[in-house]
């Protein structure tokens, strides 16, 4: 069964987006989106893990039997997360200090596992890699968007501390949108995560309805 790359990319970025399409990976989504920068960093780390684990599962898909596939998938995701953790600690230490606490959370994110089960276990290596990359990018964009909404309303800034994450060249991204004391603290606290995610979900569904797609529960399986 061949699936066009266009389809895979559109699924990952919009139609079947991990956060706004499948509503998966809510734990890191809520925990890490207190600012756009945090969301971006967490998204990128997840994208790396997703691309690598999709690739590995697709490579070994003919050797993994049905009965033990879940433990093997979890093993692969956990191994990738640990590698990212160690490598970032060693060579991207500034970034690690910002994100370090949250990288182990990727293991508990069901989005990578869902893509392994629904896609990489059945498809060849290259489409699986593309799926991992674009699902990861879609996740990153969603987290950054939620983080941006929470950060603008909650602390009045946008991409604060982005230069810690991306290097001093990205200092220009750091913006003060509202005066500093106008922040609504609740948006930074956990309830704000649910509010922002809900609002953005409504926006996405409205765009879909306007485009005549109607509301459909996508489910974790994208193969049609």
């Amino acid at each position: 069964m061949a699936i066009g790359y266009n389809r895979i990319i559109r699924d990952g970025l919009w139609d079947n987006n991990g956060v706004f399409g499948m509503l998966l990976g809510m734990c890191p989504t809520m925990a890490m989106t207190t600012s756009a920068t945090n969301g971006l960093g967490m998204g990128l780390a997840t994208a790396v893990v997703m691309a690598a684990s999709n690739l590995l599962v697709a490579m070994f898909r003919n050797y993994i039997t049905q009965e033990v596939r879940i433990p093997v998938y979890i093993l692969i995701v956990a191994a990738m997360v640990t590698m990212v953790d160690l490598i970032m600690n060693a060579w991207m230490h500034e970034l690690y200090k910002v994100l370090g606490l949250f990288i182990p959370l990727i293991v508990s994110n069901c989005l990578p596992l869902a893509r392994l089960e629904a896609f990489a276990a059945k498809e060849p290596v290259l489409p699986s890699l593309v799926d991992g990359i674009f699902m990861g990018i879609g996740f990153t964009l969603s987290l950054t968007a939620i983080g941006a909404v929470r950060e603008i309303i909650g602390s009045g800034t946008l991409f604060a501390n982005a230069s810690f994450l991306l290097g001093p060249n990205f200092k220009f991204m750091e913006m003060q949108i509202l005066p500093g004391d106008m922040g609504v603290l609740m948006m930074i606290l956990p309830p704000g995560g649910f509010l922002a995610t809900g609002l953005l979900l409504v926006v996405k569904r409205m765009i879909d309805v306007r485009n005549g797609k109607g509301i459909q529960m996508a489910g974790a399986h994208c193969v049609t």
Binding site: I64, E67, V68, P71, V72, L75, I76, A79, T82, M83
Partner: peptide
Amino acid sequence: TKHALILGVFCFGFGLVL
């Protein structure tokens, strides 16, 4: 035994990688 073997091989392999 086959499943156990497969799982074992994967555990060993990724243990080595880590």
